[in-house]
Computed example of a mutant assay.
Amino acid sequence: MAHHPPNAPILISSPDTDTLLGQLATFVVRAQTEAIDKKGKFTLALSGGSLPANLRRLIGHDGVKWEKWHVYYVDERVVPLDNPDSNHGSCHKHLFSQVPIPESQVYTIDTTLLDNLEELADDYETKLIREFAAKDSARYPVFDLILLGMGPDGHTASLFPGHELLNENDRWVAYIENSPKPPPKRITLTYLVINHAARVAFVATGKEKQDILKAVLDDPASDLPAARVKPYYPGQLYWFVDDAAAAKAEYVRTPFQM
């Protein structure tokens, strides 16, 4: 049986979405429990898209300690929080409005700065500095878990193929004015933050993701944005996918340990 080299991505493929969501919930709770046992809190960064709805199995889960969660956004659209395009709006609708997480521990963009992208990005970076650099004396934020999605073009967060932000190596939070996917104005965590996380997990489902998932997992030289997510050791990358998305990938699957 083939084995992964150390720190290689772990691919967990489920026969259907329902099984996947149950395994994802178990995985998140395990990451949470380990973090709380170690330092008394759980730091998480979330994407938008279909991800908030894919976390619905956490609602009512008796292992979740919501009062210990500190949630940030991997990227955010530069729109009011109640706008249908807002990642926070989606997360609030599908998850946070239904669970007892303290509102002060969900870190949103400052909507008074929507007209100034540079100030908006700087302000969000300051939020990270307050939570991580000030408290943990860390050079970079080290999230306990970052949850990502992947578009059919291989983009993740608001990091798009061929865009100059892929090579940003200074800022923790950067802004984009010309996103190829609407809305055009966004802020996003950079690889400096994403790749310093203790765990990063992608969630990808559906046959429309077959070709791009194969490209990301089977080509070690792939330069697609999702393929550039490579957590520094001892960080670990996971892919939670359904069999439909994984149908063309030759990458070795790892059974999920319940």
Rank of each mutant, 00 (worst) to 15 (best):
Ala2Leu: 14
Ala2Glu: 13
His3Val: 13
His4Val: 01
Pro6Ser: 08
Asn7His: 15
Pro9Val: 04
Ile10Phe: 15
Pro15Gln: 14
Asp18Val: 10
Thr19Phe: 15
Leu20Ser: 03
Leu24Cys: 13
Ala31Arg: 10
Thr33Lys: 14
Lys38Cys: 07
Lys41Ser: 01
Phe42Leu: 10
Leu46Met: 08
Leu51Ala: 01
Gly60Ser: 07
Lys65Ala: 10
Lys68Gln: 05
His70Val: 07
Tyr72Gly: 00
Asp82Thr: 13
Pro84His: 12
His88Val: 07
Cys91Ser: 12
His92Glu: 08
Phe96Ser: 05
Ile101Leu: 14
Glu103Gln: 08
Gln105Lys: 15
Val106Cys: 04
Val106Tyr: 00
Thr108Glu: 12
Asp115Tyr: 13
Asn116Ile: 03
Asn116Trp: 12
Leu128Asp: 02
Glu131Thr: 04
Phe132Asp: 09
Arg139Pro: 07
Phe143Trp: 08
Asp144Tyr: 13
Asp144Arg: 09
Ile146Glu: 00
Leu147Val: 03
Pro152Trp: 01
Thr156His: 03
Ala157Phe: 01
Ser158Tyr: 02
Phe160Arg: 04
Gly162Tyr: 12
Glu168Gly: 06
Arg171Pro: 05
Glu177Asn: 12
Ser179Met: 05
Pro182Lys: 06
Thr190Ser: 07
Asn195Gln: 09
Arg199Asp: 02
Ala201Lys: 11
Gly206Asp: 07
Glu208Tyr: 01
Lys209Cys: 05
Lys214Met: 10
Ala215Tyr: 04
Asp223Phe: 10
Pro225Ile: 03
Arg228Glu: 08
Tyr233Leu: 05
Leu237Phe: 01
Trp239Gln: 13
Val241Met: 08
Ala245Lys: 03
Ala246Leu: 11
Ala247Asp: 05
Ala249Gly: 00
Glu250Phe: 00
Tyr251Phe: 14
Tyr251His: 07
Thr254Trp: 01
Gln257Lys: 15
